[in-house]
Design a protein around this nucleic acid. Structure first.
Lengths: 241, 241
DNA sequence: CAGAATCCCATTCGATACTG
DNA sequence: CAGTATCGAATGGGATTCTG
């Protein structure tokens, strides 16, 4: 019944997140022990739409070093958030993916994003990984406005050889995201995103599609009329003073 | 249109959270710049139910040092999450409170908590601040089960002289929490919590109230039958393997 | 009580180089 | 490709002291 008063170093460093912890039974505190270290939650975000390899993660998060990436993955694995699987044997590689419980982190990540986007200080002109772009769509969808819409979309983000392709299916105010595979049926429209910022300007800035296409960072093919209707249902949450 | 490639130190250290940032337009990344530092999010949590003074915060989070508390409060203020107000003049003191935008962080904090509580590794026997205890109630309420219930409650947590007293009103599946003031009308029942763990054992462990009261960490007065019905609507989210 | 200022050690980070 | 090893530099945080 005694409560620990002073922070003592745990015997097993893999159990106690940072090596330093809060000693707090509150779930939020425990969540921060699990994913509160720098980069951790962004790694979870990157895995939310499917498993990735070491080098995929480095590409998505260019500012993380190999050392820190290795550490974080190991800790997330120890925490039960991430699992790893051997691929191959044709080409031996490892795939990192979320555990079932790890996948349950999505609502928290979306809520954090929704909150932060309301800050007047948020700078939307920074770079954005392909996964982040897709998840931001889910974050900013106006469910009421999307309720009446139905569409299947394909996104191709960045150079074709890097293979960041996704499908999105909008039904009944739900946006279902997944990595695309080649057997996917033809979508209603396809969005090719060269520069994420161009896409953001189209969706949130309501800028003219033709002009953006002329600049070369964005192209939409297929049912463009439907696409415009769909993207009209997305908007950044209102800023708060 | 150029994206910053390398991390350069910002001119204004108060703008760029940790001094090190992600350079990522994703809302989640930005959220972690704002509240991802150690202790920050727990401070927001402590302020969620009303403004607190410096010493209140130290008491609620005994493991934080004055230096770190000062730093974090300053940074949260610079980030627009927290504001400070002069109290007095009878006794000059400062009150820290969330800004309007800061208050919008609650859903994210609750979702983080909900997620973390599902980890099999979570240890509920650690200590819990009064605010954390109240918020955990909101986290773990089963809205469906609570839908038909209606009750007004008063919580007195810890020694009477420390004044951690709250009201909770359950209506239509909503649990409204607030700090109590003396003008509050009489509640349906009052819960006195000496040892947070005793309360957790009653609510989540479904342990016998009489036995816990005998141990001395918990006492419920007023409409105890209603209290039992109400607390039956709270349960820890199911663990995930 | 609220917080600024110092001191100082432990940890962490990023860069580079290296390996199976 | 998927990491490990090593090292110097930066940062973080606890303890203590001082001030309004």
């Amino acid at each position: 019944m005694e409560l620990p008063k002073e922070t003592t170093v745990s015997d097993d460093p893999s159990e106690s997140a940072h090596g330093r912890w809060y000693g707090d039974a509150c779930g939020t505190a425990f969540a921060m022990e699990l994913v509160g270290e720098r980069w951790s939650i962004l790694l979870v975000r990157e895995l939310l739409l499917g498993g990735r390899r070491f080098s995929d993660l480095r590409r998505a998060l260019p500012a993380i070093s190999a050392k820190v990436l290795t550490e974080r993955l190991a800790r997330l694995e120890a925490a039960g958030v991430v699992g790893r699987r051997q691929l191959g044997p044709p080409a031996p590689a490892q795939l990192y993916e979320l555990t079932e419980w790890g996948r349950y982190a999505e609502p928290a990540i979306i809520e954090l994003s929704r909150w932060a986007l309301r800050s007047p200080r948020h700078d939307p002109t920074l770079s954005l990984s392909p996964v982040a772009l897709m998840l931001n769509l889910r974050t900013t969808m106006d469910r009421a406005a999307a309720q009446a819409l139905s569409a299947s979309m394909r996104f191709e983000i960045g150079p074709a050889d890097q293979g960041d392709r996704f499908t999105a299916r909008l039904t009944k105010g739900e946006l279902v995201l997944a990595r695309a595979d080649d057997s996917d049926p033809a979508p209603d429209f396809t969005v090719w995103v060269g520069k994420p910022l161009a896409f953001l300007r189209f969706v949130y800035g309501r800028q003219d599609l033709a002009a953006l296409e002329a600049e070369g960072g964005l192209r939409i093919t297929g049912d463009v009329v439907l696409a415009k209707k769909v993207f009209a249902a997305f908007s950044l949450p209102p800023k708060v003073a």
